[in-house]
Amino acid sequence: MERHFEIELKKLESRILEMGNLVQQQMQQTMLAFINSDVELANQVIENDNQVDILDVKIDKLCQRVFALQQPVASDLRFIMSALKINNDLERMGDLAVYVAKRVDSFSGYEEVLIDLHIDEVANMSVMLVKEVNSLLSSKQIVLVRDILDASQALKTKVKGISSKIVEELMHKSHDVIVVATTLILILNQVERICALSNNIAESVYFIIEGKIVKHSRDFLEDQS
């Protein structure tokens, strides 16, 4: 017979995956809305954030209950500690999706600016990164940790390049263009936050598997090889 504790742990695991899928969906839709200036889709993202928030609280409560009643140790302890952090990081990603969604209408009439700057590449890379985070959460394969760190570094580099280009090429144009360009920079800053949150989650999964706290250390994967 399966122990009550294991049932709770499985429930937590499946809630985290549910959260991951929900946030991935939010990210996909917000990026799609962004590059197509699709305000209707953006509004859906804003509306759906409610589901992310509800699940966030459910996961927190479940972790609290397991800590209080089961006194987890070893791998169970690492998993539940990490579940709290991963949940928090995913919820923040959900908020970033909403941040982007709320600014989609700013680009109506300025679609060519997005095309010229290849913003679709940033959007695709962001969605791919969140997908990879989800694969890591479901498979817990340590090899994916490296992929995520690499993908997030590539995205950051891309974002920096585009941000510089915006400053160089758009900031001396008309008032309207400058407003659009500023909004774009703000969104790109949020994309950088997606990279940081993805890295956090990768580090949390690494902690679950290896039992080592690796945040703030850049070369932990080198120790592996």
Binding site: R3, P72, V73, A74, S75, D76, L77, E210, G211
Partner: peptide, 17 residues
């Protein structure tokens, strides 16, 4: 270390019940 990352699977299985 035993209660956060034991080295042996038998230890892990015992302390996690």
């Amino acid at each position: 270390d035993i209660f956060t990352k034991p080295a042996k699977k038998q230890t892990e299985d015992y302390i996690t019940g």
